[in-house]
Design a protein around this nucleic acid. Structure first.
Length: 110
DNA sequence: TGATTGACCAACT
DNA sequence: CAGTTGGCCAATC
């Protein structure tokens, strides 16, 4: 359970503070070179199986685009959750993405 | 066991 | 500037 690399991704995602976002690549880089951005995405795909809720809506691609919004059951949900946290989304893209970007490398300081 | 597929990223054409 | 390709590694067929 904790052994699976999925759980490591969940741990990081859960540490993302309210009103902040990060990218798949940042998480991958933080966990290690063996972890690729695709693995993070794959882990998020299985995030619904996690025991604890994972704020997957705070994870977007490097462009700040909500690539995975269609995986929330309701496409608008991801956008709504971000808006409710004060993050403005336009055309499936986060406004001032760099401003809200939360880097696990800096905050968690491996 | 081999082939296909990803909620990605970067480079190339 | 848009589409394609290669690479990353694990899960599914």
């Amino acid at each position: 359970m904790d052994d699976s690399f999925f759980n490591r991704v969940y741990e990081v995602v859960k540490e993302i503070p309210f009103g902040r976002v990060t990218s798949y690549g940042a998480i991958a880089a933080f966990l290690g070179a063996r972890m690729s951005a695709r693995m993070v995405g794959w882990a998020m795909n299985a995030s619904h199986t996690a025991a604890d809720p994972v704020p997957a809506h705070r994870v977007v691609n490097r462009n700040g685009v909500l690539t995975g919004k269609h995986h929330f059951g309701v496409p608008n949900l991801m956008e709504q959750l971000l808006e409710s946290e004060g993050i403005h989304v336009e055309n499936d893209k986060i406004i001032d993405f760099e401003k809200y970007f939360w880097d696990p490398m800096l905050e968690l300081r491996h």
